[in-house]
Every structure is written in structure tokens, then in C-alpha cells.
Write a protein that binds this DNA or RNA. Structure first.
Lengths: 128, 128
DNA sequence: CGGCATCCCCCGCGATACTG
DNA sequence: CAGTATCGCGGGGGATGCCG
């Protein structure tokens, strides 16, 4: 990652450094378990807060709120509030969010494809 | 992820549940910032412990050790000890590790492709 | 129902020091 | 140089309660 530049970006070294630190920050935001699971859960659906809470195995109210805020701030999910009573808040992936989602899909597929290999490897490791 | 099954896998519901909980565990292991950065750093090179420490921006000795152990346990990296003095320990990605790496690459590309979009989105969000 | 705030506890993580 | 162990702190994150 450190050695990568994005085409059409800034050429001033200072801008490059800024971009890189931003990139690392974004990566830290996004490359965490809960964020990725939320993105995967959303898929191309539109879900309510409570549906997400029930759908994402083991996530707490607080973590869900926090991660949704973060994802919204970074423009990966869109949040729409319906001014009804009781309130109804819906979340959906934006364009960039959906783009990221496809790579999360690949990660999930990878996980399932390698379940057996990993299980064996773990057993070998733990038995020593 | 919850609704996915891998082809050729177990058909017994109990096995499916076991596989799913294992999958979640693996995903939790792997979907974390340091693990992904280490994998990205390794690429298809073979690196020493100290090279990794210097290469992965901001990682501590302890975190590096911990994550390398975890990755080794899951069979994503191979660890080879050269019985010299001073000791020389080298790490390299295994087949599954390299497979995962390609999706991490995509995530990094995604990050850089969306830097501008995210920066704008953040500004809008923070200014409110 | 969804969100924010508060409290509090636990452990993640860094710093340091010691072995082979 | 690589790894393990120990200690100590700060903050992550759970539980709870109160608003709109």
C-alpha cells in the first residue's frame, strides 16, 4: 500500500503524503470486522436499524450505531429518516459502498473455500 | 454470509452450523487492520520479522508477533526458522494466503479510487 | 424505534525487560 | 535478531437509562 499511487492524483509530494495518510485512515476505518459484516449484511437491500442489529450476529446496539455513523461519514452508506412515529430509519449502500461490498463478497467466498484447509492447519498448529 | 453455503460441503445441519461458526471465527481473525496490512506487505516476497516491523507502518512488536502467530495458525503464512546466530526467521504467504492477498489488493485499490469521494463526504458530514 | 449519554469494567496494546 | 513474559494504562465496548 505504501508504494502505491492512484492514477490522476496529485503529483506534489506533500499532497501524496496527505493522500497516503488519508488512505491509511480510511483503511483502518473500513478494515474492521463489524464494518465489513454490516456492509455484507446490507448487500443491495435497504434495511432498518433493528433489522441490521438482528442480522449481524453478535453486534451490540452501540457498535452498530458507531459503525453506521462511520460508514455514513465516509459515504459508504446512506441514511434516510422517515419522520413517522415510531421513527423509521433505513440504511442502504451507496455506489462506493456497493463497490467495496463486492470485494467483501470475495473475502467471504475465500473464507468458505478455505474452511477445510484452515481447520487442518489449526489442528496441526495447536497439537504441537 | 449467514445464508451462504459452500458447494461440496456437509449436508448435515449440525455440520453446517459448525462450519458457519468456524467461518465467522476465521472472518473475525482475518478482517482486522493489522492482519490485512501484514498480508499486503508480504505480497509475494519473503520477509524477515524486522523487515515486516519496519514495513508495516505503526505496528508494534507485540501486535506483529500476535498477528503472525494467528496467520500461521490459520495457514496463511509460513514461518521458517534458520538456526543461525543471530537467528533469522522468514515469513511468506501460503497458497490460501496469496489468494486472500489478491482481494486485499482490490480493497487497497478501492481505497485509493475513492479517496476524493470519501474526503468530500467527510467534509459534508463534519460540517453539519 | 432509533440515538445519545453515562457508567464502568475488562483487555487490548504499548513499553520494558529477559532468554536463546 | 526473534520471541516470551510481565505490568500498567487507556480506551473499546457492553449495559443501562432517558429523550424525540
Amino acid at each position: 500500500m505504501e508504494t502505491k499511487q492512484f492514477t490522476g492524483g496529485p503529483t506534489d509530494p506533500a499532497d501524496l503524503r496527505r493522500a497516503d495518510s488519508l488512505a491509511r485512515e480510511i483503511f483502518s476505518d473500513v478494515a474492521n470486522k463489524w464494518a465489513l459484516l454490516i456492509i455484507e449484511m446490507l448487500g443491495d437491500r435497504t434495511l432498518r436499524f433493528s433489522e441490521l442489529r438482528d442480522g449481524v450476529e453478535g453486534i451490540s446496539h452501540k457498535m452498530l450505531t458507531q459503525n453506521l455513523r462511520m460508514l455514513e461519514r465516509n459515504g459508504l452508506v446512506e441514511r434516510t429518516v422517515h419522520p413517522t412515529v415510531p421513527p423509521r430509519v433505513e440504511y442502504t449502500l451507496t455506489g462506493p459502498g456497493r463497490a467495496l461490498r463486492t470485494t467483501v463478497d470475495v473475502m467471504c467466498e475465500w473464507t468458505h473455500r478455505n474452511l477445510a484447509h484452515i481447520e487442518v492447519s489449526r489442528r496441526r498448529f495447536d497439537d504441537v
